[in-house]
Design a protein around this nucleic acid. Sequence first.
DNA 1: TATAATGTTTGAAC
DNA 2: AGTTCAAACATTAT
Length: 243
Amino acid sequence: MPEGPSIILLKEEVQQFKGKEVVAVSGNSKIEQSRLLNQKVISFKTWGKHFLICFKEFTLKVHLLLFGKYLINKKKEQAARLSIVFDNGELNLYSCSVKFLDGNINACYDWSADVMSDAWDPKKAIIKLKKTPAKFICDALLEQDIFAGVGNIIKNEVLYRVGVHPESKVGKIPVAKIKEIVKEARNYSFEFLEWKRNFVLRKHWLAHGQKMCLRCNLPFVRKYTGVKNRRSFFCINCQFLYK
DNA sequence: TATAATGTTTGAAC
DNA sequence: AGTTCAAACATTAT
């Protein structure tokens, strides 16, 4: 479900509730649900994979993790983690993490680290990468402090597009190539957004889940890589190993 | 039916 | 005290 672009779509879909007051709350979440009652939604925001419902005094942070789902004006049979009812509809959240953040939301997040944000700052990402030369690039791309919103699919697609082996060491990758990776992390995320919006994301995957490399027709390597030990799909012919 | 998968936090073990 | 790592959580298609 998640990855940054999917959360942007969620934000778009709930705009009907902006400015609306919460009239009922339920669900199996252990948070103090009553806090939400009678509160008016000031705005919806996202930071990477975080979906943020901002109220006057606090923000509700929703993270869909790996299996999270949401339904708008619809319900599943299973109990919701949190169901937020407005007078014009409801938002139902399932198998996700929900938490309150107190105070000004801007104090909680560095918006410039979010690849989907207008405030995204590629230069900062490059500086952060330079500080961790020993890290594998496959791990670095998943670091939310550097590339908030990038998940495993985006990681695989970006590395294939720029021709970099996932087990390359950050410090061994030429600066020009690092810049390309940073640029593509944002660029691909926006393509992901439009494809996902139109339900055609999957058919545009060039690496993730693929068996053969379309460029050279060699079989992909499928391997759990990095300290994070996440699935990587790559072509040893088209993706250079900087080590 | 067992397994694996778009993710993160936690707390024990070093 | 800082790092590392396995476990926990949760869902569903194959």
